[in-house]
Design a protein around this nucleic acid. Sequence first.
DNA 1: ATGTCTTTGTGAACGCGTGCACAAAGATGG
DNA 2: CCATCTTTGTGCACGCGTTCACAAAGACAT
Lengths: 253, 253
Amino acid sequence: MATGRTHRPATRSRGIPEATVARLPLYLRALTALSERSVPTVSSEELAAAAGVNSAKLRKDFSYLGSYGTRGVGYDVEYLVYQISRELGLTQDWPVVIVGIGNLGAALANYGGFASRGFRVAALIDADPNMAGKPVAGIPVQHTDELERIIQDNGVSIGVIATPAGAAQQVCDRLVAAGVTSILNFAPTVLSVPDGVDVRKVDLSIELQILAFHEQRKAGEEAAGEAAVPAAAGRGDSADQGPDGDVPAVMPA
Amino acid sequence: MATGRTHRPATRSRGIPEATVARLPLYLRALTALSERSVPTVSSEELAAAAGVNSAKLRKDFSYLGSYGTRGVGYDVEYLVYQISRELGLTQDWPVVIVGIGNLGAALANYGGFASRGFRVAALIDADPNMAGKPVAGIPVQHTDELERIIQDNGVSIGVIATPAGAAQQVCDRLVAAGVTSILNFAPTVLSVPDGVDVRKVDLSIELQILAFHEQRKAGEEAAGEAAVPAAAGRGDSADQGPDGDVPAVMPA
DNA sequence: ATGTCTTTGTGAACGCGTGCACAAAGATGG
DNA sequence: CCATCTTTGTGCACGCGTTCACAAAGACAT
C-alpha cells in the first residue's frame, strides 16, 4: 500500500517542469555549436529548428529559467550557454563511476561525451579479478571490493551501472549505501531504490521493441491501404520523431 | 497522431497510447521471467510490482489490448506473453543493421538483448576500410559502400546508427533512401527524416545531464534545509524514483 | 443456488505538457 | 519623438496520461 504522500510543497517559485529539463541539454548542444561558429545571437525560431523542437515550446522552456531574451532580437548565445549550463549543474565537476566493464561499460568509458561536459570518469569498477589493473580508456579497472572506498574518496554521487542484469540490483544497493544518489542504469532490470535516489534507465532492447511496434503498424497500414485507402504517402500520423517525438528513450524507473 | 481519425470502429490496437506501447516491453520482460519460473497466472498487483509501475496503470494498459484477464484470478502468463509479443510485432523476425562499429557499435553487436527478442543483426557496417572483413561478434564488418545493397538484399527496415555525430545525418539519409523506416540513433545529433520514418534517440550525455540537474537540486535543497527549513518529518519531499512525477520545486537562483 | 471474496476493467476527475495566438517590449529608421 | 517592424513572453484552451474508486465478473465454498 503506497503511503499517500501527496504532500506537494507547491512552493511555486522555481519549479522547472521535468519535460523542460529533459530538453535543456538539447538546447545546450545546439547553442554550443552556434557558439563555436561565433554566432552572437539566435532567435527562438532558429534555435528551435536546430534543436528539433517547436519554437513556442522553446520560448516557454526558457521562460522557466527567466527572461534571457531580447524582444526583436533573440537570445545571446554565450549568455544562454552559461545560464543553461548553470541550471543543469554543469559548471561544476561531476565525478562518475562506471560499474561493469564489459563491452558496454568499456564503450561508455571511451565515450567522449562524458568528459566534454563536466563529467569526469573517476573510476571503472568490475567484479572480474582478471580485469583489475587493466587499463580501459586509459583508466585502470578496479575490483568491486574497492567500490565503497572509491565512492567515498572521490565524493561520487553519480553511478553508471553496465553490469549484467543479475548483478545490477546488488551493485545498485552498494552504490546507494556508499552515498550515490543518482544512477544511470543500462542493465535490463527494474532497480528498486530508496526515496531520494534518482534512477534513469537506458534499455536498448526496449527501444528496438518500440520501433518494431511502429514498424509493424506501418506495414499493416500500408497493406490495408493498398486494399482500401489510396496512397498512404504523407499520412499525418506515422509517428515520426517530431510530434510526440521527444520521448527521450529513457524512463525514470 | 495529428490527424483526427476518430472514426475507425476498429476491433482494437488502432489507438494504443504511445506511453502504453513504451511500457509493453517492460511487462513482457517481467512476464517472461514469470514464465521461466512456470508461474501460471499473475495478478495486476504482482505484475505491476515486478515491472515497477502502478497496478491501475497496468490494468488500463492491458485494457487497450483487450480483456485478457480473469476477474478474481488475474492474467494467464503464457497467454499474455503471446499477446504482447504479437502486439509488439515480436513474433516475426526483424533484421537490423548497425552502422558505425566503434566502441559503442561493437558493444551493441555483442549485446545479447537483441537476438533474444526477434531481432537479428543482419549486418555490421563501417566506413573504415580497415574494418572491412574483420569479424565483430562473429559477424564480418562490411564497408559503407555496400549499405544500399545490404538493406535491400536483407529487407532491412530497422537501422541503428552508432557513428560519430558528424556522419549520422548522412548515414541516416542513405538508410532512409535504401528503404529503412525505423532508426535508433545513438549519435548526439538531431536527425531530420521524411514523414513516415520513425526515429528514436538514445543519448548518454543527455541522460547524465538530467541526472546532474536533479543532483544539483538535491544538494541545494539539502543546504537550504540546513540553513532554513526545520527538518521535515523524515524528509517528505526529497526526490522521486517513482513515476517521473515528483518535481519538488525549490531552486536557489 | 446463493453468498462471499477477489480482482479485473473502466468511467471520471485531475494535472501536466503542448501549441496557438497575441499583447508587450524593444530595436530600428525616418 | 513617433511609427513600424521584429521577436519575445505568456494567457488560454486542448488533449494525453495518470490515478482513483467502484461496479461488474468470475471463482469458490457452503
